[in-house]
Design a protein around this nucleic acid. Sequence first.
DNA 1: AACTAGGTGGGAAAAAGTGGGAAATATAAT
DNA 2: ATTATATTTCCCACTTTTTCCCACCTAGTT
Lengths: 144, 144
Amino acid sequence: MLIGEYIHTIDEKNRMSLPAKFRKELGKKIIITPGLGQCLFIFTNKEWEKVSKKLSDSDNDLSFLKADQRNFNRYMFGRAAEVEIDSIGRILIPDFLKERIGLKNTAAIVGVKDRVEVWNEKKWSEEKELVEKQAEALAEKLAK
Amino acid sequence: MLIGEYIHTIDEKNRMSLPAKFRKELGKKIIITPGLGQCLFIFTNKEWEKVSKKLSDSDNDLSFLKADQRNFNRYMFGRAAEVEIDSIGRILIPDFLKERIGLKNTAAIVGVKDRVEVWNEKKWSEEKELVEKQAEALAEKLAK
DNA sequence: AACTAGGTGGGAAAAAGTGGGAAATATAAT
DNA sequence: ATTATATTTCCCACTTTTTCCCACCTAGTT
């Protein structure tokens, strides 16, 4: 199970090492896509096949005839990347994905059960604060 | 699987190199046609056979009016071109297809599962923004 | 202190992308 | 039919990017 939060560097060559704890589970190749919200999703190959099968109405070879389907597939596949993990556990993050979530020098890498999320470090800490506050409020509400 | 986005040049001879990552899957010959939306579709030979079979099959489930179907087929087949990939991975893009989608010096080449789309770079980034905005709504819609 | 493990950085080699000239083919003009 | 002109194809060369490998740094251990 992929859990925990790590802050890693993205160097000038767009390389980012994956947390050692994640490597075994992620395998040799991963799929990295824009996620919902301001982050990227990293899927294992297996996980991705599940996801993509669901998304792309697989018993319709002509899915491109439907505008909605076309747009969604463009969104999901056009902005995904299949990435190899190198011999020491690093991946390359394509520029177009870096740009999408405003990645610069450092990234927050977060395990979320069966996927990994990649955040701009600052945005991640904001997100955390937000979620914490909501959690506290929720807790109080529940305490009553 | 064809995924990801690449920006390539189209030179004065109408040559455009295909992303190295796509070449294996695309093979030696491809079919390039006007796509739906402001882009071109590139299919592998195999994929094209599937698509064209389905499209021309008169008892398919597309519930087109006959005239509509005729026109659509004219659109898809009449302007499709079979194109060879040269020894270093480039193709020639016919002028009439360039004109159709307003291609100039650079193109966005986008893998969408089992087809490739070619966009005017600027239009592609506009399209991305648009789809991004619609994505959540779309996801919900498709989830149904 | 030396060792190990995880993370970071950099140089050299290889691959990918781009451009341009010459040969081959096609098109047009005389 | 022949020459001239344009277009396409093939090949080579340059530049940039990517990949591969090795070295270093830091923190925790022996």
